[in-house]
Design a binder for these strands. Structure first.
Length: 569
RNA sequence: GGGUCGCUAGCUCAAUGGUAGAGUACUCGGCUUUUAACCGAUUUGUUCUGGGUUCGAGUCCCAGGCGACCCA
């Protein structure tokens, strides 16, 4: 069907069909709608900077080549203006029919093809010279153009863009095309991690990659993802921390190691949590947690200077000053300041609970110790108030199983956490190096696991063996990269700094359900093609399913969770 | 897990329980200085899904899905 006999079109399917038709026409003209290569001389932002002082209607004969996506078209009879966007920014393309025709000699209808066969969203390359138009817009005065990639799907509204959060996350590529600030966020994220790595490299730290798949999850209290290795026939856990392996490297003789990488925790999703997130853990032999405080200040300020050029920033309307040194407060003092309760004064847990209740602190039913209650009080009454960067130091031993006892304060450990904008952003200790003490603490954890705590883990015997060979005194530091990036990019949600955040699948609709009465197997075929067998489903339930007004809802409510299943296809 | 809000054309959004609309995009026509180009014309729907109430449901009720925010 030729374009001029097409009926009026506007549904998505029609738009796509029209563009497929344009692909045929491009090919008929000998133009490849999916080109192989293009060589540019500049990016848009470079040209904007280089010719910033060019006067309106002035033209220079410098020839340039540039490529990008067509974001807007303003087409006249013998003249056309396109807005071209590349990674760096945008520049206007000025197409004059006479000029294009003169330069593309082998294609006398080049200008008409441009008008007919290009759309907003297409990726093209052009050559030409630089001029500023009468209206003052810096432009490439195009000599030749080349279709590089034909786009089939329409972009969101040119003015309102894409605002639907769900679509922005599910189709981040569209978000990136139309929302330049989103591109900027991820550019900054890359600069932050690069700056951190550069700093560490400059200070003789080396990055060593440790296993993601582990036979025992450890190094933190968190619920792990479990997977299965078929040929080895073993359960494996996705790591919840890099701690225990990096410490093995310290035992092995490396003195400064780190790993910046992905951590997986089988937990909920919120503005501050994604089930996979990025941390950096750093270990330095012969150092303690005071050294780690200095390192934390150095890393965060280096990253901030890199992306912001300043240590004074705004986060969601609140001023934050990263100028070191940052405030250092013990957890006891912080809680005393906020609640008036001095948790160092108690001998018995019952006294502490009474005081906590009187101070309006919610006491959890399973509160096991004064230290736990102190931490509870901190989380409830202090954490959210710590807007400026603050080191909370000297934690209770019972919530810090990998940390060396405090050299002066009984019952406490040498640990700090960094808080900014009301959130935990880093965690650090003088690492526990005593293998006997470490064994006792891990066995206590293991007992909690046996008692049903899904966030506790078994004893990592190999890690203990490593400690028995002897680990030098060591300072360790972990920083939540996503949360740091949030602060430095003014992002309200962790999803704004993760390119492809985890979202729930829209559940697949059921295409059909069959029943094997003899084996009591319900065979369910879903629309996306997968087939599951649900075992031991009673016949009555199948009949009820068949008669239910909604197959899917009955299935979800009565069968999906209640019966075991095998995936067949 | 609980609460609040949202889901309507590709996108951004309207629509007292009474004919599903606008802008933009798309298609066609016009135009040599536009930049949210302009002018004219045509067209665009599983109103998230399934039930229910009703003469009649985008709207009311029930259940479910997905998302956002808050709380635990």
């Amino acid at each position: 069907m030729a374009a001029d006999t097409n009926p009026a079109q506007s549904t998505l399917a029609d738009i796509r069909a029209t563009r497929l038709e344009k692909i045929d026409q491009l090919q008929a003209e000998g133009m490849n709608p999916y080109a192989y290569r293009w060589e540019s001389t500049h990016h848009a932002a470079e040209l904007q900077a280089k010719y910033a002082d060019l006067a309106p209607e002035a033209e220079v004969e410098d020839s340039v080549a540039i490529a990008g996506r067509i974001m807007a078209r303003r087409v006249f009879g013998k003249l056309a203006f396109f807005t071209l966007q590349d990674e760096s920014g945008t520049i206007q393309l000025y197409f004059d029919k006479k000029r294009v025709t003169a330069h593309m000699e082998d294609r006398p209808n080049a200008f008409n093809l441009l008008k007919k066969l290009t759309d907003v969203g297409d990726i093209i390359g052009v050559t030409g010279t630089i001029r500023r138009t009468q209206k003052g817009e810096l432009s490439v005065n195009v000599s030749t153009y080349t279709m590089l990639t034909k786009s089939l799907l329409p972009l969101p509204d040119k003015w309102h863009g894409l605002t639907d959060t769900e679509k922005r996350y599910r189709q981040r590529y569209v978000d990136l095309i139309v929302n330049p600030n989103v591109r900027e966020t991820f550019r900054r994220r890359a600069k932050i991690t690069a700056a951190i790595r550069r700093y560490l490299d400059d200070h003789d730290f080396i990055e060593i990659e440790t296993p993601v798949l582990q036979s025992e999850a450890g190094g933190a209290e968190a619920r792990p993802f479990i997977t299965y290795h078929n040929t080895l026939q073993m359960d494996l856990y996705l790591r919840i921390a890099t701690e225990l392996h990096l410490k093995r490297l310290i035992v092995g003789g490396f003195e400064k190691v780190f790993e910046l990488g992905r951590i997986f925790r089988n937990e909920g999703v919120s503005t501050r949590h994604n089930p996979e997130f990025t941390s950096i853990e750093i270990y330095q032999a012969y150092a303690d947690y005071h050294d780690m405080m200095a390192l934390t200040e150095a890393l965060v300020t280096t990253a901030a200077q890199e992306v912001l050029g300043t240590l004074k920033l705004q986060y969601q309307g609140t001023a934050v000053d990263l100028t070191p040194p940052w405030r250092r407060v013990t957890m006891h003092d912080a809680v005393r300041e906020a609640t008036g309760v001095d948790f160092t004064a108690f001998e018995a847990l019952s006294e502490a609970i009474a005081a906590a209740n009187a101070a309006g602190i919610h006491v959890p039913d399973d509160c096991a110790s004064i230290g736990n209650l102190l931490n509870e009080a901190f989380e409830q009454k202090v954490e959210a108030t710590l807007i400026q960067p603050t080191f909370i130091i000297d934690y209770p031993l019972e919530i810090s199983p990998l940390t060396k006892p405090h050299r002066e304060k009984a019952g406490l450990v040498e640990r700090f956490e960094l808080f900014m904008v009301g959130r935990e952003t880093a965690n650090s200790f003088s690492e526990l190096t005593d293998p006997i003490d470490q064994r006792q603490r891990l066995e206590a954890q293991s007992a909690k696991k046996a008692a049903g705590d899904v966030e506790a883990h078994g004893v990592d015997e190999d890690f203990l063996a490593a400690l028995e060979y002897g680990m030098p005194p060591t300072g360790g530091l972990g920083i939540g990269i996503d949360r740091l990036v949030m602060v430095l990019t003014d992002a309200p949600s962790i999803r704004d700094v993760i390119a492809f955040p985890l979202l729930k699948n829209t559940s697949a609709a059921i295409a059909s359900a069959d029943y094997d009465a003899e084996k009591k197997i319900l065979k369910v075929t879903f629309n996306q093609g997968s087939v599951y067998h649900y075992n031991d489903v009673p016949p009555d339930l199948y009949h009820a399913l068949k008669q239910a007004p909604s197959l899917g809802q009955f299935f979800n409510a009565q069968i999906r969770e209640q019966y075991g299943c095998d995936r067949i296809v």
